[in-house]
Amino acid sequence: MAIEVRIPTILRNYTGGQKSVEGSGATLEELFTDLDGRYEGLRERLIDDSGVRRFVNVYLNDEDVRFLGGLSAPVSDGDTVTVLPAVAGGRR
């Protein structure tokens, strides 16, 4: 078993068009590092020095990881991680 990571359309150029990929790690950060070994550049699109990027929502199963400790959130086999672009904007 592994951790399934669902990739939004806009980032599928990093995964050869795949809608979902598999990875491993004990935390979200380790998972993203593991994925970056096979899908180079993906990690950089998801996180920056302060954690999960502002433009991106990352969910562990049904929860927004911002409420679970961000990148240090523990993950385990059988979990599903979903990435969605945040939908936001405004007048300025």
Binding site: Y59, D62, D64
Partner: peptide, 10 residues
């Protein structure tokens, strides 16, 4: 400003 609620969006 607007932002979709992240859980509703999921």
């Amino acid at each position: 400003f607007y932002r979709f609620d992240s859980l509703e969006q999921l």
